[in-house]
Amino acid sequence: MAATGKGRDTYHHGDLAAALVQATLEIVDEVGVRGFSVAEAARRTRVSPAAPYRHFTDRDALLAAAALEVSRRLRAIHEEAVATVGTPQERLATVAGSYVRAAARYRSAFDILNVPGLRATRPELRDATREFVDLLLPSAFEVLPPGRGPETAVALLDALHALGRGYVTLLLDGKFGDPGEVAEAIATRATRAARALVAGYSGTDGPPVDDAPAC
């Protein structure tokens, strides 16, 4: 139990960790990663400044836990989007739209996934990335011409990630207008661009970009 000011709140050990992660996402969404502090997360969860360190060794550990949560949410958005998708080409193309939809929903908190150096020092984040890649690799191999190796499949996934991140950056920078209002249109545009990219890797013309069904 911890108290702040006149209020008093009790957290079970498992609940506090989750509450701190949620507070971290909210803070980063408001002030960015650079403005985030463990002390502010503690204040918002109404615990003492020392309480978060019972669950997270330092600031980066809490950011890593928040990044892992964002990664899970991104994967959930993607899995929902491809639940009724029949072709490997479309499963891959949908990745770009999923990135845009996740970024629009979580805004600046999405940037936690790209904190410099964080992924390199946190095996749980590397594992989450590897699991997402493993989810997509079978589709990548299906669309590639015979004889293309794993390096080409990985290059295709890297290109899709770069394309999705590019649209996300422009969306969150306001280049397309208010992110909340244009998110779905931009997700559709990103998916169409990804279809063309996948078609290029597969060695086929693919469906006409403008006539392809929106995701």
Rank of each mutant, 00 (worst) to 15 (best):
Q89M: 08
R105S: 05
V82C: 08
R130H: 05
E79R: 08
L92T: 10
A183Y: 00
E181I: 04
L160W: 03
S139F: 10
G164N: 06
E90I: 13
A64S: 01
Y106N: 01
E79S: 15
V143P: 00
Y167A: 01
Y167T: 06
L144V: 01
D158N: 13
P123I: 05
R73L: 09
N114E: 12
D60F: 01
P116E: 15
D60C: 07
G174H: 15
F176W: 07
E151S: 11
R148E: 07
L125I: 13
G147I: 12
D58Q: 08
R126Y: 11
L170Q: 11
P146F: 07
L157K: 08
P146G: 01
A76H: 03
A67C: 11
A102I: 07
E80G: 13
F141Q: 04
L170T: 11
S108E: 12
R119P: 07
V143W: 09
G174D: 14
E181A: 14
A140Y: 04
A81I: 02
F176I: 07
V154M: 07
R91Q: 12
L113F: 00
D127S: 13
L170G: 09
A159R: 05
T87L: 12
L68F: 12
P179F: 04
R126K: 07
L62F: 12
V143M: 01
A51G: 12
G117E: 15
P49H: 10
A51P: 15
V115E: 04
A140D: 08
G174S: 01
F110A: 03
V154S: 02
V85S: 15
E184T: 14
L68N: 12
L156R: 03
A183V: 05
S71L: 08
R72Y: 00
V82R: 00
R189C: 03
D58L: 05
R72Q: 10
A64I: 08
R148I: 02
P116G: 05
P150Y: 14
F132R: 14
G117F: 01
D127E: 15
A159Y: 14
L160F: 09
A64E: 01
T84R: 06
D58M: 08
E181W: 09
S139G: 00
L137D: 02
L135Y: 08
A102M: 14
F56L: 02
